[in-house]
Design a protein around this nucleic acid. Structure first.
Lengths: 111, 111
DNA sequence: TTGACATGTAACCATTTGGTTACCTATACT
DNA sequence: AGTATAGGTAACCAAATGGTTACATGTCAA
């Protein structure tokens, strides 16, 4: 599966969708209606958000009778971390050092 | 500084802005014009993206003469990871552990 | 089989977003 | 002083986004 990082980032960009992930984190396998109870918008709006989360592969759903149960899939988040975010963490201290140095240089120019 | 996670997520949601961060990762402290050379859009558009990155505190800039130099600030990304993303990773490792255990159990049943 | 419930689809709307062009300001170089 | 260079502001535009309402479909249970 070639995961589309852009879809994941876009999906994570909206607070309502992050809240949905939070709710699923608290209780996995909730139905659409169940998730709607905690969100102050129409069922259809919640469904749209869930669709985006599914397209980003952050949520997996299973139809069970007339209900559709939603499960968290943490893999894309982990992939984003290791492939994209992690590389910023390692040089973090060095970057801060460079920043500090740049500021100090500027201060020296003033005096 | 109470960092606004929403601004960070929104800033990271656009591929052009992630590319800007990537360019700064390769070479820190670039000027606006320098960054424009690698992006197929107007200088003003790049500037807007950099403004958003600054508002999200992902980039810090310093005016030096007539140039404005841009530096990467990895702190918000690290904070997002530890506060929000990390909590999804931990259960994932647990899930993998469970899977590993299940496989080992099955292997033991065979023997 | 009929009614209630859970989900799906479609049309529509306001606001945000990501880009443009045109013009303005500030600094450096001769 | 005058010109080139680097950056800033503003008005504008098309498309994407996040929501709505109205209606349709599928499933359970009496």
């Amino acid at each position: 599966m070639v995961e589309d990082a852009n879809k994941v980032f876009k999906a994570l960009a909206d607070p309502s969708r992050r809240k949905l992930l939070d709710r699923l984190f608290e209780k996995n396998g909730q139905s659409l209606n169940e998730l709607c109870l905690q969100h102050d918008m129409s069922r259809q709006a919640v469904m749209k958000h869930l669709d985006l989360l599914e397209e980003a592969n952050l949520v997996v759903s299973i139809k069970q009778g007339r209900e559709k149960l939603h499960y968290l899939n943490p893999v894309p988040i982990q992939e984003i971390y290791s492939r994209w975010i992690g590389k910023f963490e390692q040089p973090r201290l060095q970057a801060l050092e460079n920043l500090k140095q740049a500021i100090e240089d500027r201060e020296n120019d003033k005096s």
